[in-house]
Amino acid sequence: MKFGRDSLVLVACLSLLASPALACDVGSAAAAIASVSQKIQAGQIKRIDLQKISDRLLASIPISPEHFASYASERKTLVLSPRDATELAAAVSALAPARLSYQPDLRWQLVFLDEAGNKLHNFFFSKRYVQGRGRAGYVDGNMCAFSTATIGSPALVKWLQKRL
């Protein structure tokens, strides 16, 4: 029966390699982050919408982007002042995408909008854990971890917590 067990292990390994949890395209995520920062500095992004789900909500599976809207309980909008735009661009550019080995449990959605209200970019961040909030999520549909030098949240999440 050793052959059957070995086959099962092989199938499990292959499914892990093919799973979306390992599909972070770091280059694409970094390009999207640079684009957002550039558009903020150029004045193309005029406001941001933030939708939140309580960290206390217990779900049987991690909340994904596809199911986020059905759980969102709070929404806030911030029209960017020149000072906000400068600080936001710096916080966005500090995001450092990295590969992610698990599906994050999302709690924040950040939508970047132009003057007409068109969605330009969409970021998601994970819920709060001991090591911080927002250390994993999605950048324009690309699942990634967000590296920080220390324990805590990325600068963008800290910026959002102060303003929204």
Rank of each mutant, 00 (worst) to 15 (best):
F125S: 00
P104Y: 08
S93Q: 12
S37V: 07
A98D: 08
Q131I: 12
S64Q: 05
A85V: 02
P20E: 09
L17P: 10
S147G: 04
L22Y: 14
H121N: 07
A69T: 03
W159L: 00
G132W: 05
L110S: 09
A30W: 15
F124H: 10
Q131G: 00
M1G: 11
L8R: 12
L120N: 08
P62S: 09
L50H: 13
R5D: 03
A85K: 07
L88V: 02
A136W: 12
K119D: 04
G141C: 02
L120H: 12
I53D: 01
S70V: 07
G134L: 01
I61S: 00
P154E: 06
P82C: 00
P20V: 06
I45W: 11
D105P: 00
D84H: 09
A136M: 09
V11N: 08
S70A: 10
A98I: 06
P82H: 03
A91Y: 07
K2T: 03
S64H: 14
T148L: 01
A85D: 06
A29E: 02
P62I: 06
S35K: 10
L78Y: 05
F68E: 03
A59W: 11
R128P: 07
I45R: 12
M143L: 05
N122Y: 06
L100M: 05
S73G: 14
R133F: 01
W108G: 01
S101C: 09
G27T: 14
K127D: 00
V11M: 11
L95T: 00
S54H: 15
F124K: 08
S101T: 12
A90H: 08
Q44K: 13
R135S: 01
P62K: 12
Q44S: 05
S101K: 11
